[in-house]
């Protein structure tokens, strides 16, 4: 039994976009891996990524042999008349022994609860459930066992929510951080006609182009839009609208209208998160390489172990992986983070 001064050691939940990345995460010390099938049912439906049912089954076997859980993200929104795809993905998870499914859509949640009542159900960040009332509803209606909180809450708010809900909390600690309206962003849809929330892909690579200009700068284009232009010696970020720079009549110089290219890194807040009652620490990055997975997972493994043992953690080596060369604690420390 542990008290506030020595919180329970949290689970380290790590990303995998390929079987090789999954094995890398397992070997680097993950407690659980989250991943998705190669279709529109998961919110990282990027070209060339993700798992077939067969490769997922093999990967689960690899993880289970090493006492690591595998969570299947079925966390895009099922739209008529395509709902069978989401049901099929849940069926795959049940058939091959995934340890939980992560869902956002209430229809998918209902399908899991009704057809597989023994299957562990996690609520995706894509559901955008950020109040105790909303989270309790999912718990009561569908038996949700864990909520992945949106990245809009301070640690103090997470702690308050923890005291008011009957399920576990999973919180992001590292990786890409985008628009603060998770599961509701339609910017990609506006620019490309493809929905982040329903097709599972933000800024699809098929709609992205980088063009080197004669002056050495590079423009990033999404569909018909220029979303940024980088000078020759300037760090870049992902080609998403929310991290682009724009001009308008009142601001003729390009500026970040929504977000800046920056990476979430809560390494210095890990003890606070653990004391706040967070059960699982989530690393973002299913679209990243196995090199990223190895570096980040092993760093956070050491940090969690150090904190749990009362040692000072060292997570200084991750800046090189950061988007735009910058890191942030986002809203977790203060709502005035921009």
């Amino acid at each position: 039994m542990t008290g506030p001064e020595s919180p329970r050691k949290p689970e380290l939940v790590c990303p995998a976009g390929t079987p090789a990345a999954l094995r890398t995460a397992v070997d680097a010390g993950a407690d659980a891996i989250y991943c998705g099938l190669a279709n529109e049912t998961n919110a990282r439906n990027f070209a060339g990524l993700n798992f077939s049912p067969e490769s997922l089954a093999q990967s689960i076997a690899y993880a289970h042999q090493r006492n690591v859980h595998v969570l299947l993200a079925v966390n895009s929104f099922a739209t008529a008349p395509r709902t069978q795809m989401w049901k099929d993905s849940v069926d795959v998870a049940a058939r091959i022994g995934a340890d939980a499914v992560i869902v956002a859509d209430i229809g998918v949640a209902a399908y899991v609860a009704e057809k597989y009542p023994d299957m562990r159900l996690h609520l995706s960040v894509q559901a955008g459930a950020s109040s105790p009332e909303a989270i309790r509803y999912y718990c009561e209606q569908f038996g949700v066992k864990r909520v992945v909180l949106p990245r809009i809450l301070t640690v103090a708010e997470i702690s308050a929510i923890h005291r008011q809900i009957p399920c576990e909390i999973e919180a992001f600690v590292f990786g890409n951080i985008g628009m603060m309206s998770e599961g509701r962003c339609s910017l990609t849809n506006y620019a490309t006609g493809i929905s982040t929330n329903m097709h599972g892909v933000c800024s699809p690579a098929s709609a992205v182009q980088y063009v080197r200009r004669p002056d050495g700068s590079t423009s990033a284009e999404l569909g018909p839009f220029d979303i940024d232009c980088y000078s020759a010696d300037e760090s870049t970020g992902y080609p998403t609208i929310c991290k682009g720079r724009y001009t308008n009549v009142s601001r003729p110089d390009p500026y970040y209208a929504f977000e800046e290219p920056v990476t979430l890194n809560l390494s210095s807040l890990l003890p606070d998160l653990m004391n706040a009652g967070v059960t699982a620490l989530k690393i973002e990055g299913r679209q990243r390489s196995r090199s990223y997975v190895q570096m980040v997972v092993s760093a956070f493994r050491r940090a969690v172990d150090d904190i749990s043992a009362g040692r000072q953690p060292d997570l200084g080596g991750l800046a090189q992986l950061s988007e735009g060369g910058k890191e942030t604690q986002g809203a977790f420390k203060t709502k005035k983070w921009r």
Binding site: G48, P204, S206, T218, S235, S291, Q320, E323, G324, G325
Partner: peptide
């Protein structure tokens, strides 16, 4: 990590990003 190398401008891609 190719994304990190892209962020830092060590590598560059053009044409069909997908």
């Amino acid at each position: 990590d190719s994304d990190a190398l892209f962020f830092s401008r060590d590598i560059f891609i053009s044409g069909n990003t997908e």
